[in-house]
């Protein structure tokens, strides 16, 4: 990586290890995540890609017995350091989950919740604006603008997932983590999410975990291949898929296992 790239690096992990009690789930992962790119984590089930993703906004804190060592930095600031406020970190590093999980509240409330708890906006008009803006960015505005008071859980699966993305966007994050965001969706909804990721690229650093190698190839610029808790290979997506350096990567992307 050359020098001019350094300014665009949003998050870095250095010799990151994760343990669940005694069992090591992530082994010595070092990676740079750039602000203007989509980074995809691929690998077979149980390889640790989701676990590593959850380290990036400290969602692993909620799991008992989970321990993280090594350095993970956001804009050069240690996210596991004493100075880092975890609540603020999660606002800056948003997350979208595998299964759409809208709150059982209205569509409006789903979006307004984040800005409200952080006190970003206090007046009604400002909040309306944020709701509209976030839904527009998530490509959901046209579909729901007439029924903002309906329950978020009444939407279709794909709409729910875009609602969750809008919800994450509403708190103005710098990084968005997506944990297999399309695995519970049909192909059409998947295509919409992929389009959305393409549109959001550049505005937010995006990290996406996916099982679907075609998806990684379509949406990402950088790909990291995880296997058995280690990051086997990391590089430009085109290189990983056309010219993998490691034998294990090659076996995986050619479908020999996984």
């Amino acid at each position: 990586m050359n020098k001019q790239d350094v300014s665009a690096v949003k998050m870095t992990a250095l010799n990151c290890n994760v343990y669940y009690n005694e069992k090591q789930a992530i082994k010595d992962v070092t990676i740079d995540i750039r602000a203007d790119e989509v980074t995809a984590f691929i690998g077979p089930s149980g390889c640790g890609k989701s676990t590593f993703l959850r380290c990036l906004n400290r969602m692993n804190d909620t799991i008992a017995g989970c321990r993280v060592t090594g350095d993970i930095k956001l804009d050069g600031e240690d996210i596991y350091g004493k100075a880092m406020d975890v609540v603020q970190l999660r606002a800056r590093v948003g997350m979208v989950f595998q299964k759409p999980n809208p709150f059982p509240k209205s569509i409006y409330e789903n979006i307004a919740y984040g800005p409200r708890i952080h006190g970003l906006i206090s007046n009604k008009t400002g909040l309306d604006e944020v709701v509209k803006n976030s839904l527009q960015k998530a490509g959901l505005w046209e579909e729901v603008k007439d029924r903002l008071n309906e329950s978020g859980t009444a939407l279709s699966g794909g709409q729910q997932q875009r609602l969750c993305i809008a919800r994450a966007i509403a708190v103005n994050p710098e990084v968005i983590l997506m944990d297999e965001p399309c695995s519970a969706l049909d192909p059409i909804a998947t295509a919409k999410i992929e389009e959305l990721i393409e549109e959001l690229r550049g505005r937010y650093a995006i990290v996406i975990v996916t099982h679907n190698m075609q998806q990684a190839a379509r949406v990402s610029q950088k790909t990291a291949f995880f296997h058995l808790g280690s990051m086997v290979e990391y590089g430009a997506t085109t290189d990983i898929f056309t010219n993998p350096r490691k034998e294990r990567t090659k076996d995986y992307i050619t479908g020999r296992y996984g």
């Binding site: 999660r90 989950f97 984040g114 708890i117």
Partner: peptide
Amino acid sequence: PPSIRDGAVALGASPLQ
């Protein structure tokens, strides 16, 4: 479902919130 709680926590809600 824990996903509801996760969703809130991922938005930066404190555990109490």
